[in-house]
Design a protein around this nucleic acid. Structure first.
Lengths: 223, 223
DNA sequence: TGATTACGCGAGCGATCACTCGTGTTTGCC
DNA sequence: GGCAAACACGAGTGATCGCTCGCGTAATCA
């Protein structure tokens, strides 16, 4: 079980080609899905020959694996900057900003992430990576909500709240990335934050004012 | 542009085969997605030969079209029974029950619906049908919310609220259908209804009690 | 009962796809 | 400059897929 039996020397040119191929793959996967995408189409998008593509990747699945792996890695790095003790101590509206904004930004910048992680026709290895990421993300959310719940939630209810909060976020995220860049998208983001706030506020013991259909929270706060 | 150039006579046996093939297609599409599904696999699942399959469908896309068409048709029938004047007059918690329960039931019974309507690798004709259904569904939701909003919402805000309510529902729906049948699924349904209630209550001028983390609404009501 | 038509089969055809290989070019190192 | 290795190419190969076709069976009608 050697990790790297052939740690082939790469030149700078090779590394550039790899990034170029991965970028092309992201575009085509995003537009057509994994299965419907041909390796020749990826090579064409990257303006190289099929032979060149196979110099850097052993097969089609490996392209998706590498692309997915890089995206997951970048996503995990963001987690580290999102789920910090400082953020955990923030008031709920600010906490929602602190968590949602980077998540949304990442997914808007990397639409291939959702395409790869959500498609039902992706290779098994990617689905595994996605499950791991999903589980770790979920446990962070559970921790965040569990630490603030007033009154404290039993474990099974905490699980359900975290699951639902995350699922609802994903639904809203789809709407956000589908919106055209600009004011429409930002309005969708604000709307999604309202959903999250109104759902979670009672869990953490805050009241939602009745007439505040347009405001996320009371005026005196920072938003 | 004749609608049915060859309205071929069918025997009862043929109609049964069609249903059988459609059911098999639903199962396989659901498990592997449209593109990754081979027509031979559908025939195998239905326990017939490839030749038999092609006696009833001119090509692979037609199978998905017919399946999608039947599901959309059934879904539209439900809309008629969901978005009625009586339901529109219901208090918010009961309205949410009246709208969500049939929707959830349908999607649990027909998982192929979500698979076909959400996949990025489906033939264009299905995507069109989905868009039409989505638009009509959304306008019904807009009507429901717009008629109750207190204070009344300007058109652009109403659009955003309806869009977000629907997107959030879809996210929660994915969680519900992914849950194992039984108490876990019903708990997820209740949780999703809480999300919808808490999001929409301020829009229609209701207050959400602060401590009511576990209750959807105040005790005296029917739930 | 015989004729007609729908139903059912599965080997096989053409097209496409993932992937290879022989050959030529560029780069890094002495 | 000379050599080895990485890079680049694109026609070609085997496999698979969507789909057909010829032939046999079952149902319907006269």
């Amino acid at each position: 079980m050697s990790e790297d039996p052939k740690p082939r020397r790469r030149q700078a040119r090779g590394e550039r080609r790899i990034s170029q191929l991965l970028q092309a793959a992201a575009d085509v996967f995003c537009a057509n899905g994994y299965t419907a995408t041909s390796t020749n189409a990826i090579a064409r998008e990257a303006k190289v020959s099929p032979g060149t593509l196979y110099q850097y990747f052993p097969n089609k699945e490996a392209i998706a694996i590498e692309l997915g792996g890089r995206l997951v890695h970048e996503m995990r790095e963001r987690h580290g900057r999102i789920f910090t003790p400082e953020n955990a101590a923030l008031p709920l509206p600010e906490l929602i900003d602190a968590v949602l904004d980077p998540m949304i930004e990442f997914n808007c910048l990397n639409p291939a992430f959702l395409a790869l992680m959500h498609g039902s026709d992706v290779p098994g290895r990617i689905a595994e990576e996605h499950d791991e990421l999903h589980a770790s993300l979920l446990s962070q959310v559970r921790g965040l909500i569990g630490a603030r719940a007033v009154p404290p939630l039993p474990a099974d209810r905490l699980d359900r709240v975290a699951d639902m909060a995350f699922a609802v976020f994903k639904g809203g995220l789809a709407l956000v990335v589908a919106a055209p860049e600009g004011p429409a998208r930002e309005a969708a983001v604000e709307e999604l934050k309202k959903v999250m706030y109104r759902y979670l506020a009672p869990v953490v013991g805050e009241a939602v004012p009745a007439g505040a259909a347009g405001a996320l929270t009371t005026p005196p706060t920072t938003r």
